[in-house]
Design a protein around this nucleic acid. Structure first.
Lengths: 338, 338
DNA sequence: TTCAATCGGTTAAACGTTTAACTTAAAATT
DNA sequence: AATTTTAAGTTAAACGTTTAACCGATTGAA
């Protein structure tokens, strides 16, 4: 068996209480004893037993990371990257991360991940849009939670998110700066706050530059904003507005779909049309031409979410909104209109 | 606070030992008492404390699920599905799953996931190819582990895998059945056992049908078998063998890349060439035409891996190889040669 | 009829921590 | 010099289980 607190105490010549206090950064201990204890800890490669610690302190040391299965299975690894950010941050912290998915059509009464049933997490990260029913269930659990990359309209929760309005504005402004005037927007699942915010940013930018605009510049599909959706939306957009010179897709997946449509129909990027996406997924670089987009720092969203959750757990901090900055990434799919 | 074993014992009118024995399916208990206890458990929504249980029994109740970061971030959700299978199976079991990634260039001495450093898992699932250095490190930990969708050549380990040779054979045989004779193979990372097995199956099928064949029908790229790789491999293949009538891609990602190459060069599927992939990823259905492929039951791989691991943990079972059956899925990218 | 075996359960120790309450010595205050 | 305060550490109880050892009652064998 591996060393326990007794072994450390013996080796350092102190009581087990002292070892515990040192490890919990109690100020009552002199720096000399601290040094001795830490030395013994290192030499014995001692790690406190989570079970013992949890038993007495009622801390599980676990963090739940929850998202819907279809978000998890998305083709463009977006939420997986956010998870990675959290997981990486957790390596530095006291916590383990338990990843679980829920049904994207979760209803009250549906089976929950085990660690929720048993209340075996100290906090929860909810990534991406989840059914309101699920939020209701989680709220009743009395376990602290934070949202990342999504939060529900009603209610006031701690959340880590990007400024989607600003992103939409920036993307559109980029096209305007390139002298484009007829700029189409393709989106989907318009009830999703991120997407409606991006659309709002798009409209604001146009308005801000006094550009003519009407609803026929906008195509929004019903379902999930994926490649297939981008293809069909681009198609519809061209049927309505064949004279557009630029397209802003609400995310890169749709932009990729749109790109396929354009290729299939002999439309050249950037000869005939400029295209900008949103997210900055890996695939963008492989495209021909590489996609101009708004960079979303996914890893950072994950680490920030974990850090915020830690604060919520520790200080019982009040609802707080953390905005992670985004950035325009100019590649080759947008060009100045001549 | 939630109920503990004392509350249950009180309610059922027995000792806490009895409650514990019932919950651990000890045979010493009469069915009548068992019933009483179970009733009390249900009424109080009692869940044993993992900490307390772990403290006395030295069982953590955690399973580690480990894969390289680039496998986790793959565009086609393959390993995420395997994870999902394991996660779902774990809901029925006693265990929590801790997902962690390691660097795809992991070297001895690199930072390990926390739960490994602290030996806080009862078993490990290793998904996909991982560096040998990592396997060495894990072996020294004396924690049971199983491989899924990969295992190293040397050594004898418990593993859940598909029959890649058979898959390669089946795919090729399908093309042969459609009267194709000049069948190209595109692959990558040929050191990967799955891929070399598929190639072996391809060769066997050709040989089995006495078809003429030489190495120039085969193109293998150095790096990871992704879309970009499929594009370039298809290109090279056509430069060497412009008269092929069918292509077997070692996985769907490469098949998709190849499809793009074919489209870009005015080659029609299935008019000019038939194409078959391997894996059966979601994207296949969106393609034009939908891709014929070998279906790999990813969820099942995950559940089987978890189940096997449980057996290894419990019975200390000997190394065992579980073969999960694959299946040919005929869609529209392959057609009889006329 | 007596003794051993079996059945169905209980008692109590142990697991490895945390932390409130306590102790002792030294320093500061009166 | 006597008293109080502070600093630095120790003692011991508590957390909620599991499980070996134990116990009494019933059954079976001799």
């Amino acid at each position: 068996m591996s060393a326990n607190i007794k072994d450390v105490a013996l080796k350092a010549g102190v009581s087990i209480a002292t070892v515990s206090l040192v490890l919990n950064n109690n100020t009552r201990i002199s720096s000399e004893t601290k040094r001795k204890v830490l030395k013994a800890v290192k030499e014995l490669d001692y790690h406190p037993s989570r079970s013992a610690r949890g038993l007495v302190s009622n801390i599980t040391g676990n963090i739940g990371f929850i998202l819907t299965d279809d978000h998890f299975l998305k083709t463009e690894p977006f939420y997986t990257r956010i998870f990675l950010g959290s997981e990486f941050a957790a390596r530095e912290s006291e916590y383990y991360i338990l990843l679980a998915t829920i049904d994207s059509k979760f209803k009250e009464g549906d089976s929950l991940p085990r660690f929720l049933k048993e209340k075996n997490v100290d906090g929860i990260i909810i990534a991406g849009k989840v059914p309101l029913d699920f939020i209701d269930v989680v709220s009743k659990l009395e376990i602290p939670f934070v949202f990342v990359d999504y939060y529900p309209q009603q209610g006031d929760f701690p959340v880590v998110i990007i400024d989607n309005v600003k992103g939409g504005f920036t993307a559109t402004q980029h096209l305007i700066n390139l002298r484009h005037q007829k700029i189409g927007f393709i989106g989907a699942d318009i009830m999703h706050p991120s997407i409606s915010d991006r659309l709002y940013g798009y409209k604001s930018a146009l308005q801000n530059s006094n550009l003519y605009f009407d609803e026929s510049f906008i195509v929004t599909e019903e379902d999930y904003p994926n490649r297939a959706c981008g293809y069909s939306a681009a198609k519809k957009l061209y049927e309505k507005k064949p004279d557009i010179t630029a397209i802003f897709a609400c995310n890169d997946a749709m932009a990729i779909g749109a790109m396929h449509f354009l290729k299939d129909n002999g439309l050249k990027i950037t000869g005939d049309v400029s295209l900008i996406g949103f997210d900055d997924v890996e695939a963008d670089l492989m495209l021909d031409p590489p996609l101009t987009t708004i960079h979303v720092p996914k890893i950072e969203l994950g680490t920030e979410a974990l850090n915020l959750l830690m604060k919520v757990i520790k200080n019982n901090s009040s609802p707080k909104k953390i905005l992670v900055p985004i950035e325009l990434v100019v590649r080759e799919s947008t060009r100045k209109l001549n």
